[in-house]
Design a binder for these strands. Structure first.
Lengths: 255, 255
DNA sequence: TCGCTTTTGTTCTAAAATGTTTACTTATTC
DNA sequence: GAATAAGTAAACATTTTAGAACAAAAGCGA
């Protein structure tokens, strides 16, 4: 059997079974485990599979599993990047601002980096609201109500839309699940709709997305990078991406 | 079996059963208890499960239990009366209702006595909302947003008013701080204003007040007993008061 | 066929994962 | 509240897997 064929077979095997052991592959194809490891390393380099100790996993499955994680678990994913991004966002905020902060685990860290004495904060996310609650004595906190979406802890629906309609903010910070070709996207249409309105109603608009979100897209596209004032991301962004996206908007990272 | 798979299996097991012992997991997966412990430690770090002595439990279940505990711990003033009143209020609620529940510690107990399968719940109180959060999978929860008032945990102001304006409910439950000569009153004008609107927009209207509130009045009168369907109070009400107030509205107590 | 490259297998060492023993801590029972 | 049982975690032993180094085999063009 040719190497080319074998690689393809392994790929199919992994995709079909979701997760396979090195030994299984070796037995199936009658090759040594060392060969399998070398093949897996090659495929992993091309992101065709994900290497795990003892075998390999299909990227599709891994992505699906990531999506199924609870809010609390997602919060723990790539914390450093999230904190970096949140800190950058916080630095943009000035005294006298009225800021909107959308749902998303990244946004839950922004409050940690805010030291300003006075501020008005608007959000439709209960976790974000909670992160500001300890500052309720200094800041005016405004929660956008509506129907509760348990999965993300956000308030959505017509009531939320109607309430947001009249709110003008100076700066809006919205997290994206995907940023691809100037399109900013999200997993949920109801939430995307609100985020679009929040951005439209703001003088300055910022999109928050860690480097893993760049060049990927999710279900619902809700905004265009052309219309925002900045894309806040972490320092792991690749040079090529930096130059690509800087044509569309201002890239904001630490350093 | 790969470690990855095992971790996933354990997570599912915990989620499904709510709580599992280390031994159960070990037997199920044919691994030593030490391995299970190590796995649980790893999952606990990622907040996928919560470690307890002898096993693990799902975060969802833990949250539910925590909430009930904190409610029990509310060895506040007159908890028994409040529970009595809350239970009475809950009994009035029927399938298909859209209910409004105002702020107030009494109202935070209503969720405990609700066993209906389906309901739509509207509130402008964060603590009340929290008391319903564990039921979010069955009930449609709608929070009236607005400016946060830390003192009572309620959302108030123009935004709240505007949002509530369009909401029609079948039953409204509002706590009063004082009931005197048919006047229902409250400590705060902003909250009273919202409560008045919530009552006006409801088909059926109920005032909740324990016996110590009767024949007393507070700063802001927001409603008249003539216009409500019932005054829910505890059994410590005096006969004289019962006959006085029953001329104005229907008195609801347990027995 | 020869000489060369590429691929594969083998061996070995390090790292990771798992199991076992043991001392210790936490619950439970009387 | 002391005795007993159950659970925990550190230390060590064992097994499994990873990856490097090198040897053997296969493919390939002259």
């Amino acid at each position: 059997m040719l190497k080319r064929q074998r690689l393809l077979t392994i790929r199919n095997l992994v995709d079909r079974k979701g997760i396979v052991t090195v030994n299984e592959i070796g037995a199936e194809l009658n090759v040594s485990t060392m060969t399998v490891r070398r093949d897996l390393a090659e495929l992993a380099e091309k992101h065709a599979i994900i290497r795990v100790h003892g075998g390999a996993q299909s990227p599709k499955l891994a992505q699906k599993q990531d999506q199924e994680l609870s809010r609390l678990e997602k919060r723990d994913l790539r914390v450093e990047e999230k904190r970096q991004i949140a800190a950058q966002a916080a630095q943009l905020i000035e005294v006298g601002d009225t800021i909107f902060i959308g749902p998303g685990t990244t946004n839950e860290f922004i409050a940690d980096y805010l030291t300003l004495p006075e501020l008005r904060v608007v959000t439709n996310s209960l976790p974000v609201f909670d992160s500001f609650k300890s500052k309720a004595d200094r800041y005016e906190l405004c929660l956008v109500g509506g129907t509760y979406r348990e999965r993300s802890g956000a308030f959505i629906g017509n009531l939320a839309i109607e309430m947001l309609e009249h709110l003008r903010t100076t700066k809006a910070f919205v997290s994206a699940n995907g940023v691809c070709d100037s399109i900013v996207s999200n997993a949920n249409a109801d939430e995307g709709q609100i985020q679009r309105m929040a951005l439209n109603n703001s003088r300055q608009r910022y999109i928050l997305a860690d480097h893993t979100k760049l060049d990927t897209e999710d279900f619902y596209g809700f905004y265009s990078l052309d219309d925002v004032d900045g894309l806040i991301t972490d320092t792991s962004i690749e040079d090529e991406q930096r130059s690509d996206y800087s044509k569309l908007t201002h890239i904001i990272t630490s350093e």
